[in-house]
């Protein structure tokens, strides 16, 4: 019994590692929730910030509207906010009660990201109408991944968007904001996507090629991405359109 606390400390390390590995294995071995191929427009390189980190990471690049970066998505309205558990009742009363809103902390939810679908086409059409000069190349260069829906239940959200090759369901965080009362217009609550997990670890051998690409300008590639049962992603393959010299 003299070594039981030592064994307990070792057991904590072992159990934590086994738990993490079993979790990752279940995510990858169960039913695949999304199986999608994206391009360098949707998955941008973020490796090589310094020589101190040899790991390669790419970033999923969904079209905002993320919190603080763009206008609110029109579909993230009071109905969805109420479904997520936000109290929107005070919005219809006098503006003095608006101080209640900052107290409503961001809530966890699930967000549907659609790739190259009606949501993106609607967005790019609107952008081109709004900025006819500045956005000339945006149709050719912009990411085509855009948030189109959110909900509290991932299965229900998937049922609303059954195409697993063009819609990813990811966990996210949604914050409520309020458009203050203007004249006869009542105060309006709306939602903002504050956060979705965008960082993707690139395993070998794909990471070796990304590392070689460092400082050689932009490359064209396709990333085959899968989301497992726990809605956690992994890179199943990378295909480089332009050949990369060894």
């Amino acid at each position: 019994m003299k070594r039981s606390s030592l064994l307990a400390a070792a057991a904590v390390v072992v159990v934590a590692n086994v738990f993490a590995l079993v979790h990752a294995s279940r995510n990858r071995s169960g039913a695949v929730d999304s199986d999608i191929t994206l391009t360098e427009r949707e998955v941008s390189e973020s490796y090589g910030a310094t020589d101190e980190d040899s790991g390669v990471t790419v970033n999923l690049n969904p079209l905002q509207p993320l919190y603080g970066q763009d206008s609110d998505p029109p579909w993230l309205d009071r109905k969805i906010l109420e479904e997520l558990g936000f109290d929107t009742s005070a919005a219809s009363v006098e503006s003095g009660r608006l101080e209640l809103y900052p107290r409503q902390r961001p809530r966890r939810a699930f967000v549907a990201l659609e790739y190259d679908g009606p949501g993106w086409r609607k967005w790019i059409d609107a952008r081109e109408r709004r900025f006819p000069q500045a956005q000339l190349k945006q149709r050719e260069t912009s990411t085509r991944l855009i948030a189109v829906d959110a909900g509290r239940d991932a299965a229900q959200l998937r049922a609303r968007h059954p195409d697993r090759n063009s819609v990813i369901v990811v966990p996210g965080v949604i914050r409520m904001a309020v458009e203050p009362r203007r004249g006869n217009e009542p105060a309006r609550p709306y939602g903002l996507i504050q956060e979705i997990p965008t960082s993707l670890h690139v395993p070998r051998p794909f990471s070796d090629i990304f590392r070689r690409l460092k400082n050689r300008g932009t490359a064209q590639y396709r990333v085959h991405l899968r989301y497992g049962a726990a809605l956690e992603p992994w890179i199943a393959g990378v295909e480089f359109v332009t050949p990369v010299a060894p």
Partner: peptide, 30 residues
């Protein structure tokens, strides 16, 4: 041990949870 769980989370793109705090806390306590 902190690096261990952080790296596993990174490599397998695991969503971060509060459970890592429990594992680290119990390990430090022991």
């Amino acid at each position: 041990f902190v690096m261990d769980l952080a790296v596993l989370g990174n490599v397998f793109n695991i969503l971060s949870t509060e459970r890592a705090l429990l594992a680290w806390g119990v390990f430090a306590l022991l």
